[in-house]
Design a protein around this nucleic acid. Structure first.
Lengths: 206, 206
DNA sequence: ACCTGAACACCGTTCAAGT
DNA sequence: ACCTGAACACCGTTCAAGT
């Protein structure tokens, strides 16, 4: 007995089974953990035989790659939102806003974040779209750091190195907080992360 | 037909099956990946029925926790070695040596590192020994940063925040390099990581 | 074109012995 | 005390059909 009504099921015959599977996977994973994300359970939730998923995803890794790609897009949106909310701040403060948005995204959706950064999904280069969405997030960081250089607020180090440093710091903080190597209360995340990041951001000042 | 000779097998009856399993797990994982680390395969390698492992590990997570604990111990040893090799350097350079040792450890043994930091293994507090080995690594970092403050080379920020920042930076760098979000050639790791970390370390200077 | 069903090889884990 | 064997419920994936 399928969980979905026939009416609901009809839509999957019209081409959005792929999206339905990705959405279900994202929802499932936040309710449990990446380990419990299985092709069979996702298919069950969508109300479809688990073999139907293979029509849209070559294998389980392909589904994970789609979830990750979607996640990078969502992360980009969050970062853009943070910057839009802080238009007139100086480079240092904009970078801080970006860092807080990044870390908040990760900590509020730890399982999703772990799929994005846990395993190497694109080992064989099968998912160029995933790489594209990563590149867009990278570009936002690079543009912001470059802007700080243009306005003479940041060091003239190669931008690539600044992005590596900034991304390492935010990703490391988020990732350590998720596995509880760092104990970070959600309510104190904003102030805590700013304090931890400030030394690095001060180091960028010229 | 077991893979080990009877002579070899005898030893496992004398109390080191636990260690044999952990060692085999560490070896197995570097040859493949954390996903391919299974209780059954580890047991097979040791030449023992997979049920025998349950005499020493409550479940698979307990084996992973033992691998992680062993990993933190090894990481601590590497960091101590790096500091011992740099006794007369200033605080900044000692911290750099520590950072390079940390990142090298992770990148040379990516699967082991992923077990240490990938999943939250001690969710229910079953593995206090794991927490202890993490604490020892943390203490080394804290002592080093504190020393830089005592010698008036680092800012008088609470040490905990400095450790968070430093650990976030090194862990983030290592972890992004492992999933290839940052492209880091092993031969350039030393110079690359120093360049990326320098802004942060400069930010620590008072 | 899109979905299903049966089958296969593999897991982690439980129960019930064996020495 | 330590190890084994059979069995169970779950996976991902393949093959061969169904509409």
């Amino acid at each position: 007995m399928p969980r979905r009504s026939k009416a609901t099921r009809e839509t999957y015959h019209h081409g959005d089974l792929r999206n339905a599977l990705v959405t279900a996977a994202v929802e499932l994973v936040e309710g449990s953990s990446p380990e419990e994300l299985t092709l069979r359970e996702v298919s069950r939730r969508v109300g479809v035989n688990h073999r139907a998923a293979y029509r849209h995803f070559e294998d389980k890794t392909a589904l994970l790659a789609a979830v990750a790609e979607d996640g990078y897009q969502a992360l980009l949106t969050e970062m853009e939102r943070a910057l839009a909310a802080a238009p007139r701040l100086n480079a240092r403060e904009r970078l801080m806003a970006l860092a807080v948005a990044y870390v908040s995204f990760a900590i509020d959706q730890p399982a999703r974040y772990r799929i994005m950064f846990g395993r190497r999904l694109n080992e064989d280069g099968r998912f160029p779209a995933l790489e594209d969405s990563v590149a867009r997030a990278y570009s936002l960081l690079a543009a912001e750091l470059r802007a700080g250089q243009v306005s003479k607020q940041f060091l003239e180090t190669p931008v690539r190195e600044l992005v590596f440093g900034f991304w390492s710091l935010t990703h490391g903080f988020a990732s350590l907080a998720i596995v509880r190597r760092l104990q970070v209360k959600r309510s104190l995340l904003d102030s805590w992360s700013r304090q931890v990041f400030s030394a690095f951001v001060d180091g960028l000042a010229r």
